[in-house]
């Protein structure tokens, strides 16, 4: 199936997509003590620990460090949750994969969209931090939609590919899990770009997650337009990745049911 066919089928099943996103989100928080508050508590607790470690223990010398770090951390939480959960989207799809006729690309898409909704819901807290810490937000915020679109495209492509790979090679999920930790520290989230010695700084361009993180930093924290060039590069890379992922996924999806 062509890439447009793949996406068109996804669009055709958007009611199903949203129904499952709703199931994912409601299911995640229903029956837990704090209910939907967990959405906010999770990133807040992460923030508290990182803020303590890096602005008190490690003493990164930077004004409004907590706000800065939180700005980069939220999109990373979105991305890493997508990868973590998404790699198992097909293998853990259960009866939806093995017992009913089902547009399977919906499953990885559900993971991405559910986590994206989570991300959006945590933004008000971020804005509260900005307000509290007196960091001004600017009109450059509108660039969020562009950056987020690229971010979703990149994430979905990767999740689609990993979810298919995990059907055939079952430890893909665990490998990716471990690699994510390395990736996190290589991405300028806990530290500003200026902390990287100039000789090494060029390496960042080869890290799509870094480019995206820097773009979020720009539009939120620095109040300036993101660097469009690298962002376009990531968008292009994501498209290539999407094509590869769609080809792989569509080629093998008819065998998913019997491999699970």
């Amino acid at each position: 199936m062509s890439i447009t066919g793949h996406l068109a089928e996804l669009a055709r099943h958007r009611a199903l997509l949203w129904a499952l996103v709703g199931r994912e989100l409601k299911g995640r928080y229903r029956g837990s003590l704090f209910g939907f508050l967990w959405t906010f508590l999770n990133p807040l607790m992460l923030l508290a620990v990182y803020a303590l470690v890096f602005s008190v223990y490690f003493r990164i010398d930077m004004a409004h460090y907590a706000v800065f770090m939180f700005t980069g951390l939220l999109p990373w939480v979105f991305f890493s949750s997508c990868i973590n959960e998404g790699a198992g989207a097909i293998t853990e799809g259960g009866s939806l994969v093995t017992k009913v006729m089902f547009p399977l690309q919906v499953l990885p898409a559900v993971k991405v969209m559910a986590n994206f909704v989570n991300y959006l819901l945590s933004l008000p807290i971020l804005f509260a931090f900005y307000l509290f810490d007196g960091v001004a937000l600017t009109w450059c915020l509108v660039a969020f939609f562009v950056v987020a679109a690229v971010h979703i495209l990149f994430t979905y492509s990767l999740v689609l590919l990993l979810s298919a790979a995990n059907v055939f090679l079952r430890d893909t999920k665990h490998m990716v899990n471990n690699l994510l930790t390395l990736w996190f520290f290589l991405t300028p989230i806990l530290y500003p770009l200026t902390q990287i010695p100039e000789g090494f700084r060029f390496l960042v361009q080869f890290n799509p997650a870094a480019v995206i993180t820097l773009a979020y930093h720009d539009l939120f924290f620095w109040g300036r337009w993101p660097a469009w060039g690298p962002l376009a590069g990531v968008a292009g890379l994501s498209l290539v990745l999407l094509v590869v992922a769609v080809v792989v996924f569509e080629h093998y999806k008819e065998y998913f049911a019997e491999k699970i």
Binding site: A15, L16, A19, L20, R23, K26, G27, R30, G31, S95, L96, T98, K99, V100, F102
Partner: peptide
């Protein structure tokens, strides 16, 4: 083949009718 595919245990019967119906 499978009755109640995609049912979520925490959801009410009403919600699951919509969910399962959409899946089908």
């Amino acid at each position: 083949i499978e009755l109640g595919a995609g049912f979520h245990p925490e959801f009410s019967g009403r919600e699951n009718i919509y969910l399962n119906g959409t899946i089908l």
